[in-house]
Design a protein around this nucleic acid. Sequence first.
DNA 1: CGCGCAGTTGATTAGGTTCAAGGGATGTGG
DNA 2: CCACATCCCTTGAACCTAATCAACTGCGCG
Lengths: 234, 234
Amino acid sequence: MGFTGCSCENCHNKMCSKRVPIFSAFNEDELSRVSGLIIRRQYKKGELIILEGACPESLIIINSGRVKAYRNTIEGREHILYIFSEGDFFGEKNLLLDHEATYNAEALEDTGICTINKKAFQELMREYPELSFKVMEELCSRLARLENTIESMGTKNVELRVNSVLVEFSEKYGSQHPRGILVELPMSREGIANYIGLTRETVSRKMSLLQEEGIIEMVGNKKVIILDMERLSL
Amino acid sequence: MGFTGCSCENCHNKMCSKRVPIFSAFNEDELSRVSGLIIRRQYKKGELIILEGACPESLIIINSGRVKAYRNTIEGREHILYIFSEGDFFGEKNLLLDHEATYNAEALEDTGICTINKKAFQELMREYPELSFKVMEELCSRLARLENTIESMGTKNVELRVNSVLVEFSEKYGSQHPRGILVELPMSREGIANYIGLTRETVSRKMSLLQEEGIIEMVGNKKVIILDMERLSL
DNA sequence: CGCGCAGTTGATTAGGTTCAAGGGATGTGG
DNA sequence: CCACATCCCTTGAACCTAATCAACTGCGCG
């Protein structure tokens, strides 16, 4: 089911908290305590974890798998805001205030999550300021990413947007390859289009162009080799 | 100089921290302590407070005035990310990690700020978890706003973008008026255009259209009366 | 009162969307 | 292991709309 290591419940929980950056400063004892607060849940590919407008009572941390956070626009398209993967958390809007969820969260593949009741998590943050700091760091880095996204969406230059999304994916899903960096695309052309606010046709065309220019090479539909990172991130 | 109340240094500082939402849970004694950590500074309209790429050592809180946070795009345009006003803070990227500032901050009018050394602020957050919580709340609400912005920028419908920016301004800078809501626009057409990723001409045209349709009425160049909020936020 | 800058308006152009059709990849069943 | 079906991706052509370029207007300031 995507889990590594031994199979006892206890271990699972510990591993969950151990893999999570926000708990990285915790020692074994503290982690055990956290484990006690966690409820685990399993979702199948395509299942909805949070529905926009709901008021979940818990912070959700991804144990394994990948989740897309998106909204449906008035035009009926789906706009993807985040792709979360192992170790990421979401539902932060509800952490302190009782806000409604501002996006849908759907499992992109079979996904295991840990939930922590928000009151309990607040208590933890009160006790361990380092935990608050980690959460803040993550929030700030999300802000930074959204700021970048907004800048590139404000940009008229569409090529630039496609390029930057490829660079972004290469940082998150890339691995070394003799001819460059092999990137496992986390979504389809349509997904990418919805992520950067274009249509799938345009994404397709721009990527074909990049291939013609020898900057990337497509490997099937789900992979891309970035041959010339220089020119891509320029 | 834009300050209200008595003129002794002490009072000023207290007022500064009192007006600031993140310190709203502090009592008089705690506020005095905060005041001791604050260094005040004054900027003239048009002056740069933070330069993108700099590493300011402090959190900056606005005491009076307004500040625009923006980046220069590759195309040479200026993209506005935030308009901060009294009580807002910025420089949060540097609060925990030593990140560079990701945007320029420029005073839109004569502006008074308070700066708190980041180490000292961290110490405060460690001692008063409530302070961390307030900061997190603010970060989350910024995330929410950016998510909205991204959604509306992903939208092809340009009218919608102009409409939502007017609604946003009405919430922040609007006041009652016999015929609707009077909004003091915080920036020029060009500013608005740079805020929502359009050109000034397009903003102009769309606003003229809205006026023709009887949804808004322009009062000079810096004010707008929203006559029909229904149709605007639809 | 007149100057200058911001805003408006018009004509043209460019580029992405849309609609439509063809091509590959992936996966299933025989 | 191959054939087939489906889904996604790609490519082409026409259209539409915002950007651009350019001229004009008028508000706001000295």
